[in-house]
């Protein structure tokens, strides 16, 4: 079963479409990197999946159930702003969330907080560092024992050690419970080591969606003479050109013609290629 599917999902804020015509399906058990530049629509998409805001068009489904104005019981959501009651202590906050949930494991929260250095249960939430608050918020999300974990910029304000701890906790969750995880970041480097599925969005639209290995295997970077570009067959995604040489990112490329070197792209260059193409489309649209 798919844990999260989107069908023609769009979200309009006044005149601007934050998300437009998004369609994808995330199989259960995947660890998904939701990447895209700032303002691409990542947060909007996650908030809609969490039932916090309603799509203007289309529909999101979680484990086959349409999301309608409230969070699915099997979903936990980490909001980008880490909304927590600052005047409560960590212990009180845990108790508060326990009271607001039918299915809850305070033990799980304690276990997660125990793995993280330096979160004092008696400290006021407001006195914690940004990273500390993120760790508390993640622990609270895991306390819901979710099957789908939606994390908006989970690593954004963490130092390297806390980042490693946090990833370890999330990955242990995946190993133990087979949880599907969708993590957003505007930095691909944060995520590409731990994710096996990529959802690249830009301008509110899905640019790439699929298993990372499969996506990479479908693409080729071809380097060859600028004059010979017409001999290359495949769907051109983007290209950089010098006077003599062309570097092309292609999808479903045919075997490279003579004089061209063909390699499988790494994720970084694939994403860059798609974002560059998207920016060029935007620029040319503006110039018209």
């Amino acid at each position: 079963m798919n844990s999260l599917t989107a069908t023609a999902v769009g979200k309009r804020y006044r005149a601007r479409w934050a998300v437009r015509d998004c369609g994808f399906a995330i199989p259960e058990g995947k660890v998904v990197a939701l990447v895209g530049p700032n303002g691409a629509g990542k947060s909007t998409l996650l908030r809609m999946a969490a039932g916090l805001s309603r799509p203007t068009t289309g529909e999101l489904k979680v484990f086959g159930t349409p999301v309608q104005g409230r969070i699915h019981p099997d979903v936990a959501f980490l909001a980008q702003e880490r909304p927590l009651y600052h005047d409560l202590t960590v212990r009180e906050l845990v108790r508060l969330c326990a009271a607001m949930n039918d299915r809850w494991s305070t033990e799980r929260v304690r276990e997660v907080l125990g793995l993280q250095a330096g979160v004092d249960h008696n400290a006021k939430v407001g006195s914690l560092s940004g990273g500390g608050r993120t760790q508390v918020a993640i622990a609270l999300a895991l306390g819901r024992l979710p099957r789908l974990l939606l994390l908006d910029e989970p690593l954004a304000d963490l130092d390297p050690l806390a980042r490693d701890e946090t990833l370890r906790i999330i990955m242990t969750e995946v190993a133990d419970r087979g949880t599907t995880v969708v993590m957003s970041s505007h930095l691909l480097s944060d995520l590409h080591e731990v994710c096996d599925h990529i959802l690249l969005i830009d301008e509110g639209r899905v640019q790439v969606d699929g298993d990372i290995q499969e996506v990479l295997a479908r693409h080729r970077i071809l380097v060859g003479p600028a004059a010979g570009e017409s001999t290359v067959e495949g769907t051109l995604i983007s290209a950089t050109r010098t006077e003599r040489q062309s570097t092309l990112l292609l999808r479903e490329a045919e075997p490279a013609p003579r004089g061209w070197a063909s390699t499988e792209p790494d994720l970084e260059s694939l994403v860059m290629g798609y974002l560059r193409a998207s920016r060029e489309r935007r620029n040319s649209a503006q110039h018209k």
């Binding site: 969490a50 039932g51 916090l52 104005g69 409230r70 969070i71 019981p73 936990a76 959501f77 909001a79 702003e81 909304p83 927590l84 009651y85 600052h86 969330c97 607001m100 949930n101 039918d102 299915r103 609270l140 819901r144």
Partner: peptide
Amino acid sequence: EQGTYVLAFTQSVSRTRW
């Protein structure tokens, strides 16, 4: 104002009950 309703709305308690 502080955005904490997001925390409440993403727990299993319904908005009405909250």
